[in-house]
Design a binder for these strands. Sequence first.
RNA 1: GCGGGCGUGGCGGAAUUGGUAGACGCGCCAGACUCAAAAUCUGGUUCUGGAAACAGAGUGUCGGUUCGAUUCCGACCGCCCGCACCA
Length: 878
Amino acid sequence: MSAEPSERYNPREMEPHWQEVWDKAGAFVTKEDNARERYYVLEMFPYPSGRIHMGHVRNYAMGDVLARFERSRGKNVLHPMGWDAFGLPAENAAKQGNVHPAEWTYQNIANMRAQLKSMGLSLDWSREFATCDVEYYTQQQKLFLDMLEKGLVSRRKSKVNWDPVDNTVLANEQVIDGRGWRSGALVEQRELDQWAFKISDFAEDLLAELDNLPQWPEKVRTMQRNWIGRSEGLRVLFEIAPNDKTSETVLDIFTTRPDTLYGASFMALSADHPLTTALAAKDPGMAEFVAECHRLGTATEIIEKAEKKGYFTGIHVKHPVIEDIVLPIYVANFVLMDYGTGAIFGCPAHDQRDFDFARAYGLPIIPVVLPEDKQAGTFMTEFAESDEAYTGPGRLFNSGPLDGMDVDTAKNTMATTLENRTVGGKPQGARKVNYRLRDWGISRQRYWGCPIPVIHCDNCGIVPVPSDDLPVKLPDDVSFDKPGNPLDHHPDWKHVACPECGQTARRETDTMDTFVDSSWYFARFTAPRATTPTVPDVADAWLPVDQYIGGIEHAILHLLYSRFFARAMRETGHMQVKEPFKGMFTQGMVTHETYKAEDGNWMLPSDIIIESSGGTRVARDANSGSPVVIGPYEKMSKSKKNVVDPDEIVKTYGADTARWFMLSDSPPERDVEWSESGIEGASRFVQRVWRLVNEAKVRIDAGSERLGDKASALALTRAVHKTTANVETELAGLRFNRAVAMIYELTNVIGKFMSDLKDEPCLSEISALRLAINNLVQLFAPMMPHLAETCWQALGNSGLVCDAPWPEVDQAYLVEDSVTLPVQMNGKKRGEITVPAGASEAEIIKQALSLDVVVRMLDGKEPKKVIVVPNRIVNVVA
RNA sequence: GCGGGCGUGGCGGAAUUGGUAGACGCGCCAGACUCAAAAUCUGGUUCUGGAAACAGAGUGUCGGUUCGAUUCCGACCGCCCGCACCA
């Protein structure tokens, strides 16, 4: 099959053809026994919602360009695809449509696979898997058991974020502004037995290694750093003054400012602190205050506005470094139980929250840090009138032995002092590094997830499922008509004999958070059919992923969990690599104009007609003709109906056109604006290239017998080599938009060359044209692979362009033998001169000064100075 | 509040280490081809003045360094994103 010259290029015919050719040739099946350098490119695998969207098209187009490009550069490329297939939508579909989650999911996968195949991606489909495949989650259960054995999994009663709409637990990372990330429901706090991965064991390493990921966006690294939230400080034991309300004798607090201890004026406990709970049991007023704190919730708006409130416990602690001073203990609504020890000391002068609290309750405010440029007296006076705590640097004062020290020295000195004292037989102070990062709770009360392979036995406690008994398979016969977890109310699934004592026991009915599934799939792709989670040697050979591409929305959750999993898999012997992704790229979103009808309803782009006259665009309803308001570009979303269906685009314009458009114009990390005229422009280029190739073919076939070296032929050859070198650099750096621009430029150059070509060209012109047109095809081949194959064949090349090596760049052609230099007068361009490449400075100056405009402006005077930057510029200073 | 990023024509965006601002695309204007339209091709398109040659201004604002600044420095203005009572 081949397209006739002079016909329009027909992607609908050619694209399926080449897809079949690649498929039959097994062109993109990755071989292990391949001596070439390995290159692993991976795009975040999709959730099988049923249809791909333009965001997928952009993501996979980028990955595919890299895969094809690196392949042509001689690498052994791994470019796999799979499905992040567990999750709640399948269960919701089951509830609504009476379809089994498995059926729904696999049907969606089939649809989306067909859509992805129509894009012509160079994927190794032989490695495809879905995380809901038994073969995959069996291996995940093995990993879980290995991690359990290594002490990387914990089970404890803990406060969890409970989503009352989805009826399940959420990880902290899945709570956004106090609401569930999927349901948007206000999250409640509940106490449950939970399985958790001990990600906090790796906090330090996860933080430190961020510095060794130079190919990650700075933004993502910063976000992870903040999330891990390391802070160095001191645990301090405060002695509780003897009293009759509690039997406790010490209060354990965490502070990062031990230097300000001389400014302490109160202590504050979290509403959930054990001491609070004990005291509230006997104090109804306090119990009411605690309840009030819980009602406040965690929503951002509320926290921002909430006043600092407290409740005095009636007890005091002794000041650790000032004799005969006691400090009152409050329960305060701004102290968090899950950070530090859930208790703090308050130094109002140097912490804004403490300041506000002290103001509200009439507590002393004692400044102990003096800004470097202030006198103690004036600072005290100014400070008394201020509403702000001073949190900057300075020297200690009002602080006895610390007076005169800078903040860091004072911190250290105080730490050492307290380390050397004891309270109740323990050191009063202990240096401690605290992290915000908390363990990753993975228990979910759901059916469509990976079962947690443990058994609860009344005699033996928690018993791991023996590996011979794996997999713990999900039962097929489940009902979704009752609220709660279908696994829990399944008639017999959970009832099993204890593997240890044989007595009646219960299976764990919780399944794993679906983020577990996506935390190691990149490793599984290296040996997707192995009967172990990985084949360690193979995983180590491929990993880390050279280039990972996906959305910024996974900057914390997925990427942090994956980094943890790599470490956990290392500890359990499944691989050596601890950083899973060497290069990370976060691509921007696809946006589209929004359209609103007169009645205020959003309208689909396909339901409107846009007319433009004299630069103004007017939209109206395609059916009724009534006017439609054109709104700004926003992220494509179903709710605003500003979506374009990739299937329709592929049918109308072809995959190559869609890919080309997605890669041109906008830098890949920025949002791209989808527009009708944009896709039309891309389509125009496809046809233009096709015409150009056919015209070139006619000229080349006609040949020539005239000898001769034409300057235009040399210029074209230079342009080809230069563009090849530049496109290579840009593609390697993922600057697809710049590569596209250069290819356009070269196309223009070739077009110009052809229209200038005489009826009887000489040999040098024909061979320059042959090189140019073939190279052009190769340059755009990673982006528009079908068109490239068609052109490649039409030009009479043998084999597939996807197998052809990247064109060679001859450095000799990159060196120009004459240069055009701009000539500036006082920094403003006035003209230009052309000089031989090796021209001396004196020559250049002489030529520049003889320019008409320079002579005129100098008006007979000598220039003050002439600056010559070789190969760049000449500047005449008058 | 803290952290990260960004401000360039009508629009998306280009501009190596400071060296011709506006590549390339979209849009628009004019012309060619056509009975006509579509498609295609050619030319033009930062702004102001001018028929043109040309001159002046110009990369958010103000200032600085420099022969020369979109690029470096300082102050400000505006926008986007992330985090946020983390002691």
